[in-house]
Amino acid sequence: MNSRDFAFDPAYYGLPTREDLVAYRIWDSHFHGFNATATPMAQYRANNLYVERMGIERSITLEAGGTLRQPLAPAAHDAEMRLLLEQERNRLSGITPIDPGFPDESCAKMREWIERGPCIGIKYVGGNQRGIVCSHPNNDPIIRYAAELDATIYIHTWLKVGGTPRLPGRDNNPGESTPMDVVALARRFPQVTFICGHTGGDWELGVRVVRPQRNVLLEFAGSDPHSGAVDLAVRELGVDRIVWGGHGPSRSYATEIGKVLDADLSRADRMKIFGGNFRRLAAPIFRRKGWPIEI
């Protein structure tokens, strides 16, 4: 059996075949192939088996340059990462994590990894040592520079229930943004598009938080699968505001793809969520770098 073979036909089980998955043109905008391991390159290579099986067209790693735990500190594999992003440009893209606690250093990193490097965007990670969320004024120079570069902007968000009295968002990490933070930031930059990650953490609330802010897209990745979630998001936001991520290898492509398959959508709308909407967002920076992109 080679990596693309299935023992039975998925269509028999009401699922897309591998050919169907390939035809969806899936861009995984939330790829953790290099995260949380002592051997990130080996993990990336091992994960490619599942990229092949699930017909993923492009993976966009969120940890290009540094690490998610220490975004501004060089990682041992940085040089190898740069090389890989060049060599595998046809199927791998990089987004570099920044830290709004250190806006000057973050902009310097963006210059190194985006303007003069291979990356296409920035990521706000799920917390930082100074406890600065994305709505803080520190973020303005970062966003201005990102807009100048046509860089994509991904913001990890969550609404972890906790505190006294218990409420969603009160158990977030220091510096871990909420969807409310994303909306506050997006209001200051109405011409810039933001991705609110993890559907806000709590999708039923996150959808309604971002709904009025039309320059905010909502990302499905890295949370449990809930039947009906994508339906609700499409109903409230419209299909053009939904992007998809696999969050592998810590999550299953099966989990994340299943969320979209569960929804009552046309094939064209599934294609938008699986990749079309992100490609539309990333097209300007691809063209700026002289890379081909077909939306």
Binding site: M1, S3, D5, F6, A7, F8, P10, Y13, G14, L15, L49, Y50, R53, M54, D224, P225, H226, S227, S252, Y253, A254, T255, I257, G258, K259, L261, D262
Partner: peptide, 24 residues
């Protein structure tokens, strides 16, 4: 875990892994 979770997620997991017919 249906109907809380989509049925598709669990079924697709059996195709995501390179399993033999006997294992499936």
């Amino acid at each position: 875990h249906a109907p809380y979770a989509p049925v598709e997620t669990a079924v697709l997991k059996l195709f995501e892994s390179p399993l033999t017919a006997d294992q499936i």
